[in-house]
Simulated scan of single mutants.
Amino acid sequence: MFAHTTTIWFVACPDPAEQLRRGLVADPDRTDDFIRRAYRGAVPSATASADLSSVPAADDVDVFAAHYGDLAVLAGRSLATTSPEELTEFVTGLEPGWTVVLLSLDPTASTGVFARWEDGRLLRAFAADPVRIHADHGVPFPFESSFWAGERPLEYLPGVEPDPLDLPFHPAELAEEANRQWLGFRFTPPAAEGDTDPSRIPLFTYRIGSDGTVAVPASEVRPAEPAPSPQNGPSAPGASDTGEGTPDATRTAPIAVTPNGSDDLSAPSAPAPANSAANSPAATTTSAPKKRGPGPISRYFGFRGRL
């Protein structure tokens, strides 16, 4: 199963992957200021120092943040969305002029989402589950071509006939590849040679309180207990769950089905097919995920998604 996580990175350096690979130190004071600007009208209070690998196992109420100078990140399940365009005003206003990169993975809904903003505008966004495209904005980047060409295919349970209108890849795999291309790492194993281990990326954990809450600054918190690592492999409706790890970094691994359901990055490539995938027999085996209430950002900024 792939990781359950959402991250929003703010980039003002030429090579964020190299910065992360060399190692960073989170500035607690700048991080406090950064998250206060993200949650205006609320009171973010630091609860622990942690690292990026702890985000997938965290509670919905936990929000993570770090500011490293010319890089910054917000993370947490409550930031999840399948409509990246709704975040444009919010993310471009936090650090004006910076590049912004979104990754959102939800194994309960089998969705993968990625987006990139440059110079205050949404350049590329894609959100889908294996049978339906929720958002497809902008021209695909070169690294996407192998997915659309069917070179990173979905894997189905024995006896399940793929529908020809299903996507030719798992959206979570594409979203994590976007994150790897832009930031140099992915959450779900296997890691490729040279990938940064998320456990080497420090950040702070926060809880978002209301007016009157006494805020604890990040400079005063201690490290949290280590979180368990996410399990291997991503999925598709009707996909098999062998429990085995993925043998290499280019293979699309299946995920479990529950009863409830070096490319040139400077220029985009030719457009990918934009039509939504139709429902398939594989998709009908998974019920709709349990509806969840609005997250903290949607309550403060009025977005429709789980933010």
Rank of each mutant, 00 (worst) to 15 (best):
F2C: 14
F2E: 08
A12G: 12
D15K: 14
R22M: 11
A26P: 01
D33C: 04
F34Q: 04
R37S: 10
A38P: 02
P44C: 03
V61L: 07
V63Y: 04
V63P: 02
H67K: 04
H67A: 15
Y68C: 02
G69T: 07
L79R: 01
A80N: 13
V91Y: 03
G93S: 06
G93D: 00
G97P: 04
W98M: 02
T99A: 14
S104E: 00
T108W: 07
A109Y: 04
S110F: 12
G120E: 06
P130D: 11
V131P: 01
D136P: 01
V139S: 15
P142Y: 09
F147S: 01
L154Q: 15
V160W: 01
V160Q: 08
E161Y: 09
P162I: 08
L174Y: 04
Q181T: 08
P190V: 08
A191F: 00
A191T: 06
G194S: 09
T196I: 13
D197C: 11
P198G: 10
I201H: 01
F204S: 10
I208Y: 05
G209K: 05
S210I: 00
A215Y: 06
A224G: 14
A227C: 06
P228R: 13
Q231V: 13
N232P: 06
G233Q: 10
G233R: 15
P237Q: 07
A239S: 15
T246Q: 07
P247R: 09
D248T: 15
D248F: 14
T252W: 02
A256I: 11
N260L: 13
G261M: 03
D263F: 10
A267C: 07
P268C: 09
A270E: 12
P273M: 06
A282D: 03
A283C: 05
A288T: 11
G293S: 14
S298V: 03
S298A: 14
R304V: 11
R304G: 15
G305C: 12
